[in-house]
Design a protein around this nucleic acid. Sequence first.
RNA 1: GUGAGUGUAGCUCAGAUGGUAGAGCACAGGAUUGUGGCUCCUGUGGCCGAGGGUUCGAUCCCCUUCACUCACCCCA
Length: 419
Amino acid sequence: MEIKAIRGMNDILPDEMPRWRLLEETTREVFARYGFSEVRPPVLERTELFFRGIGDETDVVEKQMYTFTDKSGTSVTLRPEATACVLRAVIEHGLLNKDPIQKLYTLGPMFRYERPQKGRYRQFHQINAERLGEESPLADAETLAMAYDLAGTLLGRDSLSMEVNSLGCKECRPGFKDALRSFLVSRQERLCEDCRRRMNTNPLRVLDCKVISCKDAVQGAPVLETFLCAGCSTYHEAVLASLEALGVSYSKNPLLVRGLDYYTRTTFEITASGLGSQNAVSGGGRYDDLLSILGGPNVGGIGFAFGMERLILLMEERQHPVKGCFVVAQAFPEVETKALSLISELRSAHIRAEAAFGKSFKAQMRRADKAKYPLCIILGEDEIQRNTLTVKDMATAEQYTVERAVAVHELKALLAGKE
RNA sequence: GUGAGUGUAGCUCAGAUGGUAGAGCACAGGAUUGUGGCUCCUGUGGCCGAGGGUUCGAUCCCCUUCACUCACCCCA
């Protein structure tokens, strides 16, 4: 029986790597411009971290976690998201004592046990940014701007849209929840089965339901915006004004709800066309209570995540640029030995060099062509006799004779002209 | 967890009322015994997803199972 990869876990094959590298490089570049530094927490954490951090009534925690007990009997979980992990690291190492403002990002795999679908896998990768220690709507706006900046440079602004909302804080949200719940109870016979359950556990989610009868029933429901306390309301206005100042185009979506419990005030989502139903490319928001819930200082933060596979799906294919030479050698032991030392000399000079021994001359040429090498070096008995090399330009088919002694120097010059 | 669709060569896909399979691309070799791409020729490659049932005989029909895809749910 052939062993195959586990469901929902994919190999990233060589052809796809250029896109992944571009994605990672762009992320590092953009985030560095905003003063963010990289961290790398482990992928395995104590299960309790996510219970406390994400909220035990969320779908993620209730049914999507890869949880098991390790050999010491502790319950551990493959992280379903990164924020709780990064904050755990910040708290554990007292980073906020060294600097009360922390701007961090991390890249890596996350795990959720869900039915795989386009843009949704059981092992998937996220880009995650967290910004801690600034109580200011400007910090919120700048964080959203950074997410928008990254998405824009990767995908172009045209296919993107950003939606913003405020979820209020622990002062004003309960009032809204209660009002919403009693509104929903009054109309519960029109709600779908799921929503009748959600009505009690997480009434906000009902607003987001896609079932038409629910959308209908929700008409005229209390609006979160009107319940926001004065603090939240002015804060939200300031965030929106700052977004405009930053040139970020967004739309308000009072129904935008996040799946994780820890969000307060600002939340947002970036969606892209072309992904089918999993069209959220990024999402995030402010979490003023999460640090303290996790046992840290009473400091707020804001962050977001990008789904890397979703970005990759939208990025154009790229090719490995190949700059170097392919060495074609006639199949005689003496020639092959010389070829070997030439290759090694080239590599020492930081020139990419490759050969395919044990192949016919023609086959070697074909490989040189297929691998898209701009130059091909031909080494045969004649060249060895005369202490020269034949260099062939694969694009123009021109050939030059080069003295063996100055070969590396010459090749460097020739390659410098190829981009 | 629910629903629908699909599993045949490395990839994309044909196939017959049930008689153990083909194409294109890719790969390898040759036409050109030291010259790639284009062309032509040849070749390698398949337990027809797995298990069971019906049948003289199943890749095809039936059941089961697994996987993939899309959608729901939920999310990045």
